[in-house]
Structure formats: structure tokens, C-alpha cells
Computed example of a mutant assay.
Amino acid sequence: MTSQSRTTRIGLIIMAILAIGTGIYPFVFAFVKGAQGLFTTKPESLLQTSWYIPMFLTHVLLGAVAIIAGSTQFFESWQRSRLKLHRTLGKIYVLTVIPSGLAGFVAGFYATGTWYSKAGFICLAIGWVVTTVIAYTSIKKKDISAHKRWMMRSYAFCFAFVTFRIYLGLGAAMEIPFDDYYSYLSFLCWVPNIIFIEWHIAQLRRTVQTV
């Protein structure tokens, strides 16, 4: 194993740990009494409706399952040795992304903050669902290469669950007023992820071309 591949593997392990840790958090948020999270920033009239909290919990809980199920996809040797499990996790990922993404799309219209806060979360939900559907249709057509590329893009959107929490924590640690930075997170939590994954895909294509 080269130092580069060793570094890459360490990075992937850290990413998986962060994904699993972030995936567990929504279950604490949902089932531990007094854990209100971002509900404290919502108007009481919205929280009193019969649909908002169930829809929001659908988004975060299924999103948590998706981020855990998808966290194994970058370990190719693991996939090859456990192909059946990989396919099962892939199905779980797709079946949780669709309802979570659709619920996130609706929730985006009620996001805390400015209009661009809402726009960022709405775009995130659309991008997540669209890339996942394309990844799924690609594998149904036996186009493994396209499937891998689109799954990377899908998980870049999914990983916004992690980066969002990191940025929230950094903002709190730096004692920045919540209203001063929260609206920017709706784009900041996923745009850098997509830029990075597109760069990574381009690097993989160059590697294949030079072999």
C-alpha cells in the first residue's frame, strides 16, 4: 500500500466515523426528552401544525439511515468481498434518500433565516434526490462506471448532514451570533462537497486514461 493510498484510507475511515456519528445524532434528537435542537428557532405556530414535526423527523431520521448505509461505498475492497451486503445497503440508501430528500425539499421552504437559507436547503434536497435517482438508474442499466460517479455525487450531498453539524459547532465555538452565519450554511454545507467530489472524479478519470 502506498503512502497516498494509506492517507486516502485514513481519510475515508475518518469520513465514515463522522458519518456514523452524525447519523446517530438525529435519533437522540428525536427520542431524548428535552433535545429540541433547531426547533427552538422555529415559530410556535409552525411547530403546532400536525404535519411539520413528523415531516421534519422523516427527513432527519431517514437521512441518518442513508448517511450510515452510504458510508461504506468508498471502500472498494470491502464492496468486492461483500457484494450482497453492498447491494442491500445500496437499496436501503435509495429507499431512505427519496422520502428524506422530498421531506427536506418541503422543509426547505420553512428553513430558519433569509431567503437564500431556504434556497440553499431546497437546492440541496433537489440535488440529493436527482443524483441518487440517476445513480440507481445507471446500475439498473449495468453502467457501473456511471453508477459510481453518480453515487459519489449523491453522497456528497448526503454528507452535508456532517458538514452542516461541523459548521454549526464551529460557529458556536467561535461565539459567532447564530443569525450571523446560519443562513450561509444552507449552501456552505454542500457546495464545497460537490466541488471536491467533481475534482476527485476528474482525478480518477485522468488516472484511468494514463493506465
Rank of each mutant, 00 (worst) to 15 (best):
R6C: 03
W78R: 01
P54L: 10
T2Y: 14
L18V: 01
T210V: 06
S138C: 04
D179Y: 14
R6W: 03
P177E: 12
S183M: 05
I24M: 10
I201H: 01
T40D: 03
S45M: 10
E198T: 14
V106P: 00
S50Q: 08
S145F: 13
M174Q: 06
I10L: 14
Y52N: 00
I194P: 04
Q209H: 10
W190H: 07
P43Q: 12
Y116V: 00
L85A: 12
T8A: 15
I13N: 10
A119M: 09
K148W: 00
A103L: 02
P99Q: 06
T22R: 07
Y181R: 04
K141R: 14
L89S: 10
S145K: 14
G23H: 09
S77H: 07
T49S: 11
L61C: 02
G120R: 05
S138G: 06
Y182V: 13
V211T: 11
L12N: 10
D179M: 10
G21H: 15
V191D: 00
I20K: 10
I98F: 03
A103V: 06
V208K: 15
A135V: 07
I195R: 03
L89K: 11
A135G: 15
D180F: 11
G90K: 06
G108P: 00
F178P: 01
T137Q: 15
A66I: 05
A30E: 11
A146E: 13
W128Q: 09
T49C: 11
F105E: 05
L57I: 02
R206L: 12
L124C: 05
T41P: 01
A119K: 07
R6E: 08
L12F: 15
K33W: 01
I126G: 04
I201E: 00
S81C: 00
F31Y: 12
L18C: 10
P26E: 06
D179A: 12
I14E: 09
A146Y: 03
R165I: 02
Q36P: 08
I201S: 01
C158R: 02
E76I: 15
T137F: 13
V106N: 01
A173Y: 00
L46E: 07
W199F: 15
F74R: 00
F105C: 03
F39S: 05
V60W: 14
V211E: 10
I98G: 10
